[in-house]
Design a protein around this nucleic acid. Structure first.
Lengths: 252, 252
DNA sequence: GTCTATAAGATGATAGAC
DNA sequence: GTCTATCATCTTATAGAC
């Protein structure tokens, strides 16, 4: 019934093993061309961009410093010069967009809450909270798409970036839950946390854009169709939140 | 507001680096004790168990063969003797429980559908489909818990195990969707696939037991409380499925 | 089946010339 | 800031003795 041969991300041997397997160009002889002079801070950003891309696809251990340098078009030693240890590079990547990402989401729900006033709805709130990341992932350039996948990965396994995630993402989530509580006054805090947990999983899986859904549905639904994903998610989660109200008794 | 110092999985340098960092025992001198004779097939299982544990926590690249051998209490060369390349070991781990896992879920929803007959409900179906993995993770011993986390990881990033996942998991999911279609006759296939996508994300995040929820909720809700997670998930997803019925027009 | 020894190469990181 | 050269270590994987 299912077609076990559709396109899935290919397994990825670490840097050199992959180059070998791919029968890649025989490692250009002689001097590599000197890098052109870069604008101030540009090298730093190039490295972050490359690392963001690779970490989001292969995880911390699946990426080598050499690979990052190669994709960034800079020398290996420069990566250490700018960021120190590999782990620090990862943290820098995750940190770079964390504040923007969350400030924007908080601003969006606050703006919505103020505009809507008494007419505030659950769907409206979720829409305001979910749409910014989807929009960035779609239209913010490749960096934002990679970052979205990195956030998804970190949410699913906080071994790397967990600290940063808790520091920057949790306050935004708390604000959302606070506002949902106004719309669902009978919900307990526990109800809302479990509700958010369910939403969070869906969001994470969506931002990862793994292609699983494409294959499962034989192309009927596409992982990368974030517009549609958002529409379904808002409806699905709003109904879900309402359905779990009252499952745990409220604290007195 | 959040406590940025609670317990989260610690970053994990690769094998030797971690041993060094931990200031571990000075690598015992002299001959290691010979392994006792093992029952037939036991060594194989020991290796699979160790690999399952480690892969589920650190991913493919975050685990070394030496580490697997050490945790299994066998010689490094034996891992290759039994499984060949590292990638083949990973596949063997993922494959070992794939059939059981999915056969049991299909059996559970089929049994439910037959017993309930006309009285079949969405909640009943989801309960039948979701409870087995939760039960195993809770009561099936550590192996099943590790496997659940591995499934979660693979769903979130199918670079490794994607093929196996599609082959073994998709048919079970298709069967679930088929039965949901009976309960929600007005839903289009697309509606159901997006609905399942939302459920799948929640399931994945839950089986991962990352501790994110514990921290976010300051201990009010616990990732490891799979009983409660299941109760909320059934209610949340059932309402979600109903809410998305009709969003995409049905195929003629 | 189990272990020793070792090949063959990749990796994170740094010192120091320019 | 950038690049070369290199260290010290780790990694997968195999050949071959027992």
């Amino acid at each position: 019934m299912s077609k076990p041969d559709a396109a899935l991300p290919t397994p990825r041997p670490v840097a050199a093993a992959r180059r070998k397997a791919a029968g890649a160009a025989p490692a250009r002889r002689g001097r590599p061309p000197k890098a052109q002079a870069k604008a101030a801070g540009e090298t730093r950003e190039l490295i972050l961009d490359a690392a963001e891309d690779l970490f989001s696809k292969h995880g911390f251990y699946g990426v080598t410093i050499r690979e990052v340098a190669r994709e960034a078009g800079v020398d290996t030693a420069l990566v250490h010069y700018y960021f120190g240890a590999k782990r620090d590079l990862f943290d820098a990547v995750f940190l770079r967009r964390a504040a923007v990402w969350n400030d924007e989401r908080v601003a969006a729900i606050d703006r919505y809450a103020e505009t809507a006033g008494e007419a505030m709805t659950l769907e409206g709130l979720l829409e305001a909270f979910l749409r910014p990341p989807f929009e960035w992932s779609l239209k913010g350039g490749p960096g934002w798409k990679h970052y979205a996948a990195l956030v998804a990965q970190t949410n699913a396994n906080p071994s790397f970036g967990g600290e940063t995630m808790a520091r920057y993402f949790d306050p935004a989530i708390h604000r959302l839950i606070e506002l949902i509580a106004k719309v669902l006054p009978d919900a307990s805090e526990v109800d809302l946390y479990w509700g958010y947990h369910n939403l969070s999983g869906a969001l994470t899986l969506t931002l990862g854009e793994t292609g699983r859904l494409d294959r499962l549905s034989n192309g009927l639904a596409r992982s990368g169709d974030l517009e549609t994903a958002g529409d379904y998610m808002v409806r699905f989660a709003a109904a879900g939140f309402r359905a779990v109200v009252g499952m745990s008794p409220r604290q007195p």
